[in-house]
Design a protein around this nucleic acid. Sequence first.
DNA 1: CTTGACAACTTAACAACGTTAAGGAGACTC
DNA 2: GAGTCTCCTTAACGTTGTTAAGTTGTCAAG
Lengths: 211, 211
Amino acid sequence: MAKKIDRALVADTALRLLNEVGLEGLTLRAIAKELDVKAPALYWHFKDKKALLDEMATVMLRRMNADLGELPARWQDAIATAMRGLRAHLLRYRDGAKVYSGTHFTDMSYADPMERHLRTLTGDGFTPAGAARAWFTASSYTIGYVIEEQAMGPDPVKGGEGYDLAARAERLAAYPLAVAAGEEMFRDHDRGFEEGLAAVIAGIGVTLRGS
Amino acid sequence: MAKKIDRALVADTALRLLNEVGLEGLTLRAIAKELDVKAPALYWHFKDKKALLDEMATVMLRRMNADLGELPARWQDAIATAMRGLRAHLLRYRDGAKVYSGTHFTDMSYADPMERHLRTLTGDGFTPAGAARAWFTASSYTIGYVIEEQAMGPDPVKGGEGYDLAARAERLAAYPLAVAAGEEMFRDHDRGFEEGLAAVIAGIGVTLRGS
DNA sequence: CTTGACAACTTAACAACGTTAAGGAGACTC
DNA sequence: GAGTCTCCTTAACGTTGTTAAGTTGTCAAG
């Protein structure tokens, strides 16, 4: 009841609430109520709502890095593991990718894991610039993928009704490839992500390594 | 003064205004004022604000497809041209990528160009599913890239002061690769996009073609 | 002409939002 | 025991998306 409130607790509570109400429903008053506090109290800990969202993204990143453990030795596995972890953590929260993307982090906890990942790449034939480019390219793919994934609604293959593919097929009867593409894109996001990720990593090896 | 207002005019005006005020400043009252009309009038043409944003994204897509012309014959060039066009149109508007991503289109004008692009791929050794995966992978990369690009602010190489790289380098003195990565990522977005795109396309050729 | 209907707006108002100003309770210091 | 600092409350402001109800213009039917 009379718990001590600090930045970490606010951000954690906000992330929990995010899963229940989504980004639209994530108001300062709702977060405050969850903390048994009135809305203006949050302004003691954060200068405005954007600062709170930045902190939430930073907490997501910290948790992701905490899950990291030993890095794989092969650079392909290092990138693949990191991107799977990134996607998994973005998917843990409703609209997680939207919250994460385009915020900038409130501390430097990202630097150490990033340095280790980049060192794996440079130790394997990448120039520093090439490693950075590889990292940014894979991250862009992952974030873009998850944004679309979360915007599409629940994965139909996992039970939930995400999108009416039959109706879509009827509207697009004149465009058979577009129909097939829809069925490819709306089904089984896990497999789809892996296929795209494999392509991105393979391409990084071909065009970015050693340049 | 007494122009006829319809959905297309509203969406076009909103897109123009977007460049002046950004997504945060894009209120219904501001859009209405631009049209010499009061805010509730917009509800005659759109059921709510989200429907207007969907229409804006659709207009962006239509303009993109209008710029399309003859498709390149090689599948690599088809994807590269399409993704450069996508990025260029997302960049035409402030927060363009955020508006575009995660909205769903209000008509079927996307189907015909998509079908033609996919046909280029299937005519070049891709299965329908492989072509769809290739398309979605490249689009995810492009959208993710532009979201980060627009969130980072203006390209420092083009004059504007986007981000203080010197201060960043000082904070991260213990992490030399992360410093180098920052300089790679914050400079010259055009070249960075091309390098990542080349990697993605190369990887698509290796892992997705003929499967 | 008048009537009536429909389309395209206006005026007025609502609840909810982010945010600020001012103040109060409780603990810690000198 | 007075003063200061931290952390929160109460009250309020201006804006936002949105709804309800009424007004104007247009046009066809009788």
